[in-house]
Design a protein around this nucleic acid. Structure first.
Lengths: 255, 255
DNA sequence: AAACTTCAGTCTTGTATAAGACATAAGACA
DNA sequence: TGTCTTATGTCTTATACAAGACTGAAGTTT
């Protein structure tokens, strides 16, 4: 082991922080991701060189990376190296997309990713609720989108999407979100979405929505309230979707 | 290393199966769980003794166990040993229970586990659909339950539950399921539920259900179609729940 | 001369093992 | 009864080697 380095405390000092080396290593590396020092798609230094940098062995760095890989943060390729995951990796396009046509039974048989029609897009001051969600003050601005998403058979869902303006500085009232937003956040702004929290309810569709979706009046639809949170635990996106439930369902696998 | 054992192939035979030792070890151990050789709650032999048994090193066995622990199959306790997980471990009571009152915001603030009132219970021949789900023949029998589940504030959901009779030989028309069924399957029959697949829809409640739940006629409710699958990939439980969605929601966290 | 193949060297991640640290429980002993 | 010792577990770290992937030199063919 190296003589004197950042991590190798080695002095059995009276510091209370009894934390395994690989946990410290993981924290350091995750912080580099948060800080944007390592950006999505980037090739990381090799396990050996990181180990050398941190003053630990390759196995320890590797164990730290195990967690991050399992979490989907990193992607390893034997013989080539380890990359910061992009939203497209791992067929992760569908990681957060749970809607499936009723007929396709196989779990692997994925639906097409729906297209989007934009109904409205505007910037405005954050409402009380939005301030709570994004931890903003009353002067802060947010972007709001309304769009209708459809697959080849017709409209699937209506959704309202809110983003804190600060995180997306170069937006204009005419910039459209791409189809895969998390890929977009990742590649363009370096925002890594670590998880999303969803709340599902069954509600009766408002008249305008049921019309847009081509559903009868008072039809029941699935309401999905989703908050995407980044690695630093900040909410970076809030969306409410109203999904038709007559030919689609929300599929979930719990382990 | 031991001289000649089951796993240490060592012969460099022309078999194509190039599988890492730790994968083989994991398969062997999972099979012991499936076979019931190791039952839920049981203390496993130590990593060293298993390693000795399989003819590999402790580290390899440990790596195999890492996966199983992450999967929730095993529970490790430093200094004591490794146990086969019980359904109650890991506050796993709520692992498959995703319904939360609207007011409780914190993810850790768990709702009370609801009580059950049984409306019907009977044994009968498997329908076509049930044969498909459980891979049964037309003569095979199933148990069917109907129950109303309530929390202190009143009824929450109505559900119909189907079990293949073969798996639960000592059932009678009056035996009630305990509140935590997966704990029950595990401790009594050694059936380890590895995962559950759920399909969610928004539907209008049938009149009898809306009455039972105290909802207005035509109220939208959340329909949850759940299939619990055991370690051997067999479906061991099928249930359809209709949940009130006015003061509860289904919460999901995707990583 | 240009294009292709082969192969060795060197980089990477993946696998297996060993040794010691740390945690817990049970018996020895004052 | 309380403390110490010991045995037996898991947990952490390090090391050695295997296997995949790229690079470039050397040879071969066209």
């Amino acid at each position: 082991m190296a003589a004197t380095t950042a991590m190798a405390s080695s002095g059995s000092s009276n510091r209370i922080e009894a934390q395994p080396l690989y946990v410290k290593a993981r924290n350091i590396m995750v912080n580099r991701l948060i800080a944007g020092e390592w950006r999505p798609g980037q090739l990381l230094p090799s396990e050996f060189s990181i180990a050398d940098d941190l003053g630990v062995s390759q196995g320890t760095v590797r164990k730290a990376m195990d967690d991050m890989t399992a979490q989907g943060l990193l992607v390893r390729k034997q013989g080539r190296g380890t990359y910061v995951a992009e939203a497209e990796d791992n067929s992760i396009l569908f990681r957060f997309y749970r809607l499936t046509p009723d007929d396709s039974d196989a779990t692997t048989d994925k639906a097409e990713f729906p297209e989007s029609d934009y109904l409205a897009q505007s910037q405005g001051q954050a409402t009380k609720q939005e301030q709570d969600i994004f931890l903003l003050s009353s002067e802060d601005m947010v972007w709001r989108f309304e769009r209708l998403r459809s697959d080849p058979l017709g409209p699937i869902l209506w959704e309202r999407l809110v983003l804190p303006a600060r995180q997306f500085p170069d937006f204009t009232p005419t910039t459209r979100l791409p189809n895969n937003v998390y890929q977009f956040y990742s590649s363009r702004y370096g925002i890594i979405v670590a998880k999303v929290n969803e709340k599902l309810r069954a509600v009766t569709a408002p008249q305008n929505v049921s019309q847009l979706l081509g559903l009868p009046d008072q039809a029941p639809v699935l309401e999905i309230d989703r908050r995407a949170v980044a690695l630093n635990d900040q909410v970076v996106e809030w969306r409410i979707s109203l999904c038709r439930s007559d030919r689609l369902h929300y599929r979930n696998e719990l382990k």
